[in-house]
Simulated scan of single mutants.
Amino acid sequence: MNCSLLTLVVCLGSISLTLSASAPVVSIPAPDYTAQSVPLSQQAQSITVKVRSQDFLGSGIILRRNGATYTVLTNAHVLQAGDPPYRIQTVDGRIYTANLPQRLNFGKNDLAVLQFKSAGSIYAVASFGASPTPGDEVFAAGYPAVEERGKKQTFAFTTGKVGLVLAKPLEGGYQLGYTNNVKNGMSGGPLLNRRGQVVGINGMQAYPLWDQPSVFADGSKAEERLHQMIIRLSWAVPITKVMQMIPKAEKTTVTTVFSKAD
């Protein structure tokens, strides 16, 4: 073998070693672009609104957007706490007058929707996840009621875990029990999973003031041991129940809705 041929063999061998050393780089998994880069609390706040009439009533979730029209999900008992006209206050502080859509009925489930129009501002809309299982980490969000005059109302975001998923719902459709601290005013706000997806709608606090029997939607009562477990947890209506019923909202219309800056 002459010198020039030997040189060529050595060079090719060097290239082969270099490629071999760099091969692992090719096998590195691509970045997970589905991972959320925005903090969960910020995601939750972007889709959570205040529901008002003359005064603050509770919280709500921006469920969907159709053009300039937004649908907000909340609890029926939140709306029952005040009289129309209802108003929605979004994360940017703007207040919009909202209407109750016609021909939408959630039956005996503690659910209701409002709709408002925003001609200038665009708001985030919730994404939805599957019902969680016991032990899953969940996050409850909303706006607790202010009890002291002059105290500023702040957004609350609490961490906990699912404690119970009932085989059949309690009255109002409540089926997800969790350890998060939920205060007055957070009713209607979202319960989220680790991906920032809404899995339920907050509505019942732990340790109710009146220890009444836990009653299921079918009218039967929970036995005492289960009842004691139920009252130690906060409760949400599963978002899966909402999505089974909400397609009817697409057929509704909103009239005489206007917006105004706060």
Rank of each mutant, 00 (worst) to 15 (best):
R149I: 01
V257E: 09
V215I: 13
S53K: 02
V91E: 14
P208H: 12
V113S: 00
I246P: 08
V198F: 01
A23R: 05
S214T: 15
R194L: 05
A140T: 12
H227S: 02
I95W: 04
R232K: 15
L164T: 02
T34N: 15
G67D: 01
G82K: 09
S27A: 03
G107W: 07
A119E: 06
Q89G: 09
Q54T: 09
G135L: 04
S259Y: 05
I88V: 07
T97Q: 07
G129T: 08
W210P: 03
K108T: 15
N193S: 15
I47L: 10
K151A: 04
E171F: 11
D83I: 00
G142Q: 10
G93W: 02
N99C: 09
R64H: 01
E137Q: 15
V254I: 01
M1I: 14
R94H: 05
G160S: 00
S121R: 12
I95H: 00
A21I: 09
T69A: 05
S127Y: 00
Y123S: 10
E223D: 14
A119V: 07
G172S: 00
S14V: 14
I246L: 14
V51W: 03
L8E: 13
P169C: 13
D218N: 15
D136Q: 10
N109F: 03
L164S: 08
F216H: 14
A44H: 10
T255D: 11
I230F: 07
L192W: 04
K152F: 09
R232Q: 15
A222G: 05
G203D: 07
D218V: 02
A98R: 03
S234L: 01
Q102L: 04
V26Y: 11
T240M: 04
L17R: 12
A76I: 12
T179L: 14
D218R: 10
G67C: 08
W210S: 15
G196Q: 08
N193C: 14
I61H: 03
K248G: 05
Y86A: 00
T71Y: 02
G82M: 06
L176I: 03
I95K: 01
